[in-house]
Structures are given as C-alpha cells and as structure tokens.
C-alpha cells in the first residue's frame, strides 16, 4: 500500500516526498542541497518542474519564508539542447531559446 509519501516530486529522477523530507531532516535545507543529495532536479527537465515544489516543502518543513528558499538562478542551457546546435550561430545567445 502506498501513501502520499511515495508520491514522486521529481518525476525525471523518480524522487519521492519521503526521500526529500528525509534529506531536509538531515539538514539539507536548500533546493541545491536537496538536489545534490537526492538527485531531485538533476534529470532531463533540470528542476524546471519540481524545484518550486521542493522549495515549498523545504519552507513548510523548516518554517522559513518561501522567498528565502526559492532558487535564484538557472544554469545554461535553460532547456535541453542538441549537441549539433553548436553549428548554429544563435548558439552564442546565452538565452538559447
């Protein structure tokens, strides 16, 4: 029987709420920390789906304001990009959209 704790928060890497809460309880209390210890947000979408949810879980569990927990930046590339894109001159555009 599964419960809410078995819900996938990060669908790309299949990381559950339970694993994320456990990491937070071990003292990993930023979105980056949680990512590096659980792989949540390390998959194909690079956290674009789950990082806000994870921030909310951290905020709730630690009692910190959500604004303090939300990630402030994303690394290039902001979405998956084919290797062959390097042949395209627009590749020089850091926005890469």
């Amino acid at each position: 029987m599964t419960d809410d704790k078995d819900m996938f928060i990060c669908r790309c890497e299949e990381v559950t709420l339970r694993e994320i809460e456990q990491a937070i309880d071990e003292g990993f209390v930023t979105v980056k920390d949680v990512k590096r210890v659980t792989r949540a947000g390390m998959g194909l979408c690079q956290g674009r789906t789950c990082s806000k949810t994870i921030a909310r879980i951290i905020a709730q569990r630690t009692g910190r304001p959500l604004e303090d927990v939300l990630p402030k930046s994303y690394r290039f590339p902001v979405r998956p990009e084919k290797m062959l894109a390097v042949e395209n001159e627009e590749f020089n555009d850091a926005k890469n959209s």
Partner: peptide, 11 residues
C-alpha cells in the same frame, strides 16, 4: 554520432 544527443546542463 553524438550530434543528435541532448545536453541538459553545463557546470
């Protein structure tokens, strides 16, 4: 042959 593979991150 890796031309068609996506890269998802740089660090």
């Amino acid at each position: 042959k890796l031309r068609d593979i996506n890269f998802i991150r740089a660090m």
